[in-house]
Structures are given as C-alpha cells and as structure tokens.
Amino acid sequence: MTTVYRRRKRQFLQLVLTCFSCCFILIYWEQLDVNVISHLKSYSYRYLINKYSFLNDSMSLNKEIAARLHNYQYLITHENKCQDQDVLLLLFVKSSPKNSHRRDAIRQTWGNEQYIYSELKAIIKVIFVLGIHKDLSQRKRVQRNLLVEDQQHSDLIQQDFYDDFHNLTLKLIFQFEWANTFCKNAKFVMSSDDDVFIHTPNLINYLLQLDKEIMNFWIGRVHRGAPPIRNKESKYYVPYEMYQWPSYPDYTAGAGYVVSQDVAVKVYKALMTLNTSLYIDDVFMGICAKMMEVPPQNHIYFAGEGKAPYHPCIYNQMMTSHGHVKDVHHLWREATHAKVTSLTSGFWGQLYCRLIKVFLLCKPYYVDTYPCIAAFS
C-alpha cells in the first residue's frame, strides 16, 4: 500500500511539474523565441548564409536600378580633402545635423588631426557624414548653422536625404562613394558614430604596425549568426518582406570598424548592385562584404555597442567604446595621460593590469563590452 501511494505521489508531482513547465513556456514563449530559440536557429543557419550565394542573388539588382535608389545630391563636400597627401586613415563619423556639440568635442579630442600628426606623424582625415534635418520648420536654420560650421572646420559632407535612423544605409553608401571618389589614396577607411570614443593613438599605432601591403582587412566587433529582429516594437525591427532569412551574414557593429582601401573599393562595387532597402547599415555592410568574399575579423578591443570600463589598464589597449557624449573630454585626458603607460609597463604593471582586467571584464553574467579573453591579451 505504501509503495502504491509513493508511486501515485511521484506521478502526481511529475504531472504538476509538467503542467507548470508547459504554462511557463506558453506564457514566456515570445521572450524565449526572441532571446533563445531564434538565436539558436540563426546561428545554425549562418553557415549557409556565409557559404553560399543565395542571399546575394536574392538582393541583387540591375546596376541602373540600384543606382537610382541612392541618387542624392551633394549639399556640402570637400573634393580636395585628401589630395596629394599620404593619408593613413579616412575616418567617417555618422552625425546628426543638430549634434554640433558632439562634433566639437570630437574635434577637440580623439578627432584632432593636428594632434595625431604632431604625436604620431600620421595623417588622418576626420569627416562628419550628414543628411538634412527632417523637420521642415527647423531645416533652414539648421542648414545655415551647418554651413557656418563647415566654413570654420571644413570637415562636413552632406547629401539631401533625410537624416534618420532608417536612412543609415544611405549614409553607408555615401561614405564609400565619397571615399572612392575623393580619397582613394587613404590606406584605411573607418566608420563610426558621434557617440563613440575612439582611442586614436592606440588605433593609429596598431595600423602603422600592419603590413603595408595588407589586403582584405576588416576589423571590429563581429556579430556571428545574429537573427533579424521581428518584434515590431524594436528599433531594429526588420519585416520578412525586407529580409526573409533567419540569420544575417557575419558583420561588424556599426559603432566602429576599419577596412583596408581594397575592401572599401570592393564594398562600393557591391553597393552599386544591391537592393539598399535594408536600413540596418552594419548588416548591409556585412552583405556587401560577403558578396565580395571579405570575412570580418574580430578585434577584442572594439566595444561594439558596449561601453568600456573606466580604468588605465583598459585605456592602455582600448580601441573603441560606445555611449560617450558628456564625458568625451574627461575620457580623452584620462586615456592619453602619461600615467597610463607608467602604470601598465613592466612585469608588475602587467601583472597588476591582468588582475584588474579579470575583475572588470570576466563577469558571471553578460556585459556588452570587451570579452573576458581581453584580460589575457
């Protein structure tokens, strides 16, 4: 009797547990599908996306039709910006017309061309990429201010499409078109946002150490097997009609990535033959590069969408960090201070920084910044 009772009790508990699990899955299915299942499906599908050409075949257009999709007029440009100069890096910064304070902060800190040349003897060109202000009531005033700003700094380029999140692919095309038209002599081309902090001395030193004949070079924070967002409430929502596959090709986060000149040429050629309706610009960059058979290379000190921890041991190897607006001047002073080198050099300095980086980067939970492996580099 006791044995029968125990068996029935166990069966009852199993039934309750099964019902509870089913209810949990039904209630939270959407979250599970978005956060777990869709990622598993997309990552398993990424091999097909990266290996075969059906994605490019589905997005390819007649060259004349593709050209008409992004035939916009130049409002501000500088055709001679790179002329007769040995440009190491052409650095595009995607910026909104109203963000003049961000552009000024960049000019005074990591985007200071004169500082880079005086300290590192390298020529960089920092270009802010703009569309036109969406609000018609403010457009004339904003445009006048942009013209005054450009007369002072000569570093703005602008076309007459609306400056909007859904037009970021147009900015991508604009960047590579300008680079291939007016700055073919730049060895490297970079794309970033105006809320990204770039440790330009670290980046320039890294680029200077590369082989002069380097080709197929494309570095940044690589996303592998990322699924399209199907949630209509999301900023990154992409409908099936726009992109039908369960996985994007491998791509680098649009917050900051660097390509060699030959890749810039290849991507521009791809841009001229693809349907540009997909407005997630970094994904579209991945599609273009895949078409030209250029794989992205992950660099652990490109932060992608994350913000790097504030510490001299991090600054010593930092390349990019995302989400900086009000702290740009402070971070620039701290990151380029002589104490960074003195603190991180020598055996004890390196050991100290190893421990600090393990503490800052190796968390038991996900943090969107540099990976734990960066603590051991």
Score class of each variant (00 low, 15 high):
residue 280 I to K: 12
residue 65 I to E: 14
residue 291 M to E: 08
residue 220 G to C: 04
residue 220 G to Q: 01
residue 365 Y to V: 08
residue 255 A to E: 09
residue 77 T to Y: 15
residue 267 V to N: 07
residue 229 I to S: 04
residue 83 Q to P: 09
residue 5 Y to Q: 14
residue 74 Y to C: 01
residue 345 S to Y: 03
residue 297 Q to L: 08
residue 252 T to D: 11
residue 68 R to E: 11
residue 177 E to R: 13
residue 59 M to L: 15
residue 208 L to Y: 00
residue 367 V to F: 09
residue 245 W to H: 15
residue 52 Y to M: 07
residue 155 D to L: 04
residue 252 T to F: 00
residue 254 G to M: 14
residue 50 N to F: 12
residue 290 K to H: 14
residue 236 Y to W: 15
residue 125 K to S: 06
residue 56 N to V: 14
residue 339 K to I: 08
residue 38 S to H: 04
residue 48 L to Q: 06
residue 112 N to K: 02
residue 364 P to K: 09
residue 45 Y to L: 08
residue 25 I to G: 04
residue 69 L to Q: 15
residue 352 Y to V: 03
residue 71 N to M: 09
residue 88 L to S: 03
residue 292 M to Y: 11
residue 168 L to Q: 08
residue 188 F to L: 04
residue 147 L to W: 11
residue 371 P to C: 10
residue 112 N to M: 00
residue 333 R to V: 11
residue 97 P to K: 07
residue 158 Q to P: 00
residue 351 L to E: 07
residue 92 F to L: 04
residue 115 Y to K: 11
residue 66 A to Y: 05
residue 329 H to T: 11
residue 40 L to F: 12
residue 190 M to G: 01
residue 14 Q to V: 02
residue 213 E to S: 14
residue 202 N to K: 03
residue 127 I to M: 11
residue 18 T to G: 07
residue 179 A to T: 06
residue 121 K to P: 00
residue 107 R to G: 01
residue 191 S to V: 14
residue 314 I to L: 13
residue 114 Q to F: 01
residue 165 F to V: 02
residue 57 D to L: 13
residue 76 I to S: 05
residue 183 C to A: 10
residue 92 F to T: 01
residue 166 H to R: 13
residue 45 Y to S: 12
residue 248 Y to W: 15
residue 96 S to C: 12
residue 331 L to N: 03
residue 252 T to N: 13
residue 196 V to C: 00
residue 311 H to M: 03
residue 21 S to Q: 09
residue 182 F to R: 10
residue 161 F to E: 05
residue 254 G to F: 10
residue 135 D to I: 14
residue 152 Q to V: 11
residue 306 G to S: 06
residue 87 V to G: 02
residue 319 M to H: 01
residue 309 P to G: 06
residue 15 L to T: 03
residue 178 W to E: 00
residue 287 I to L: 08
residue 115 Y to M: 03
residue 205 N to W: 03
residue 349 G to V: 08
residue 374 A to N: 05
residue 136 L to K: 15
residue 257 Y to T: 11
residue 333 R to M: 03
residue 177 E to I: 08
residue 314 I to R: 01
residue 127 I to H: 01
residue 103 R to L: 04
residue 190 M to T: 05
residue 242 M to F: 07
residue 66 A to E: 03
residue 301 Y to D: 04
residue 376 F to V: 09
residue 156 L to H: 05
residue 368 D to F: 10
residue 48 L to D: 14
residue 218 W to M: 12
residue 99 N to S: 13
residue 208 L to T: 00
residue 27 I to H: 10
residue 77 T to G: 04
residue 357 K to T: 07
residue 353 C to E: 11
residue 276 T to V: 10
residue 344 T to A: 02
residue 29 W to T: 02
residue 326 K to C: 01
residue 334 E to Q: 12
residue 315 Y to I: 05
residue 159 Q to W: 03
residue 315 Y to W: 15
residue 17 L to H: 12
residue 360 L to P: 10
residue 209 Q to A: 06
residue 302 F to H: 04
residue 120 L to G: 00
residue 15 L to A: 15
